[in-house]
Nucleic acid binder design. Structure first.
Lengths: 364, 364
DNA sequence: CTACAAATTGTCACCGGTGTCAATCCTCTT
DNA sequence: AAGAGGATTGACACCGGTGACAATTTGTAG
């Protein structure tokens, strides 16, 4: 149970020095009042200096800054948040099933937040679960975050982003280029990356090429497939519906989809998976089927998460600068604090990374 | 540049309804004042209900709760934090190089925090970098988190934990059992897990067994090595110093350490790596050396991160219930809010997971 | 029916900042 | 040298809660 039966008043001794020097800074921490008193100005002027207001005389500003540095004062985020009606938290609202993706986004955001007063708060959001929008909204209304960052597939949920915009919360979305919008966005050229993968395979001489795509609820799924088909078309190929399997962006789903594709006769000589997790599943499925990689089957993934370089053979994949994107998203958000009013879009181009999992098909 | 040249006063129209009904709740959000007014009590009494104080008459409490539910009131965390001198943030202070570990800890903590008012804030902490303690301390003093959770190796930094304790911040450490302390802890029996790995290998018939340990700054490194040696001793074996290599808990370090071990003559028939990342590196090094796994070399890891199940062959490893540990750590922290004053220790036992990377040694 | 203690509720200052707007200080003009 | 008008600065209320302590109500013994 709670310890609620203790008396409401706190019987602890309290600040012993309370009766002492009336001018001594509180033992706890330095506040704006201490600075104001010592610098012989009003707290409002100190506040102006903190907030870099231009309406402070240079000499005053210098003196206040000196005192601030001397006492090691840092403004209380809670108090500021209360007064401003906006906290110094940046919320990462995510549902991406790939841990690698999530960690890299986090790292990028943390890169950008370093040295600022902003903190990164994690807010997972299960779109499959009813009421997920209300949960995020509740967080937003309660904690009044400075802004939210939404990677796919949260970023593709129109209902959610609409509700957040309506609540007056700033946010940056990370999404595929095809998803246009009037808000801040970090865009990835998914179709282009997938086309690179297709070109790579056709250049190696593959003709029977299969594709495992992600969940239909992800826009990247469609974009990557479409880009892949466009890339194949450049070599005069089309994607046989038999050669298309659906996955869920997870290892296990990739493995199962690959099992189906590998059982085809004739067997495809190459498989392009919608992300690295599924490509890893494909690799395992191929191994279980007794196939050699890349001699019997070439495998290409997408994202270049760390696992791609840890497999044997290394996974040929399309690198997405996920960490950079996270950093850019956070920067975009912070810029709005500095008065950047116009919405900004920023593009990131994927790059094909060739490792050992792809090679020319065996002569049949 | 900043938009600091805008006038200090906000020229926007402001709340239009300000002159209207004096009793109407603010358009923004419902506050404790609204509840108090409508329930015809003082805000202090509402505050008591919010905080589940027992000093409120049942009827009053019921009525206030009704009004709270009706208006959908939720107390402002910033205001509470300001008044209490303690925020509703839980800080995860981490430096573990393995992304899988980090994500799982996060998930566990988030599990425990779901449905509470607490938020998870990420606070990476590079122990190699000078001033890392000051950074964490600065965060703690500024944001006054409700508590911190520190997994290894941050949890093993006496200087850091000491400073945090001195600052009066509550925290829970996740560490090896050998690291005793007067504070809340989640303990893992690393030595026991490593001993299980040793028994597994000796039972398979291995005699030339090597070990790649982690960085010396991690306590788990010593604990795992010691447990491993103890397990070998049960079979009458000792660990030849030649068969010991140092790694850094990273993929690349494991790969390099394994290269050295695999070049020995006679070659070890089994390698126990201090974590899965290094075991993965070992697997790649073995493949590069043209060895078959497990026929030519058995490999065992530690942690059972997801990658262990994604490799081919699957990695035999020691499973640590990382997510459960994160959840337990957060629960422990929350319990202190409910008056649990005694420090609590909670143990988690590792479990050997046998997959395809270990088998009896080939007859030589 | 009183009186006194316990239970319940209220008042008011304060947590540490910011917004509003008035007051004061300069710097030029004329 | 007085006045105008912009540049600086300050006074004070307020953001939405909680702590300390006083006030009021209730319960119960005498």
């Amino acid at each position: 149970m709670h310890d609620t039966d203790r008396p409401e008043t706190n019987p602890s001794p309290g600040p012993i020095d309370a009766a002492g020097l009336p001018d001594a800074p509180r033992s706890g921490s330095v506040t704006i009042n201490d600075i104001a008193r010592i610098a012989r100005v009003s707290k409002k002027t100190v506040s102006r200096v903190i907030n870099e207001s231009p309406f402070v005389k240079e000499g005053t500003r210098a003196e206040i800054k000196r005192v601030i540095a001397e006492l090691g004062f840092t403004p209380d985020p809670q108090a500021r948040a209360l007064a401003l009606g906006k906290s110094f938290l940046i919320g990462l609202v995510y549902d991406n099933p790939s841990p690698q993706y999530v960690v890299n986004i986090q790292r990028g955001i943390l890169d950008a937040l370093e040295g600022t007063d902003f903190q990164l708060v994690l807010r997972p959001c299960d779109r499959a679960q009813a009421g997920h929008i209300e949960q995020v909204l509740r967080f937003a209304q309660q904690h009044k975050p400075f802004g939210l960052i939404m990677p796919p597939s949260v970023s593709e949920d129109q209902e959610l982003t609409g509700a957040i915009a309506a609540a007056g919360i700033g946010y940056v979305r990370i999404a595929s280029v095809s998803l246009d919008g009037p808000d801040h966005m970090i865009l990835t050229e998914d179709a282009g990356g997938a086309a690179q993968a297709a070109r790579h395979l056709t250049a190696l001489g593959h003709r029977r090429i299969a594709h495992i795509h992600g969940p239909l609820s992800f826009r990247s799924t469609h974009e990557r497939r479409q880009g892949f088909e466009a890339g194949l078309a450049e070599a005069g190929l089309t994607l046989d519906p038999l050669h298309v399997a659906e996955g869920g962006y997870t290892f296990e789903s990739g493995r199962q989809a690959a099992e189906k594709l590998l059982a085809l006769d004739p067997r495809p000589t190459a498989i392009f998976a919608g992300n690295d997790e599924m490509a890893t599943g494909t690799l395992v499925a191929a191994r279980e089927a007794g196939l050699r990689i890349p001699e019997d089957i070439s495998i290409v993934g997408y994202d270049d998460t760390p696992i791609a370089g840890r497999l044997w053979p290394g996974l040929t994949t399309v690198r997405l600068p996920i960490r950079d994107m996270g950093r850019a998203a956070a920067r975009l958000l912070l810029d709005t604090a500095n008065g950047a009013r116009r919405t900004a879009h920023q593009r990131f181009s994927p790059e094909l990374i060739v490792r050992g999992s792809s090679a020319p098909p065996a002569r049949t």
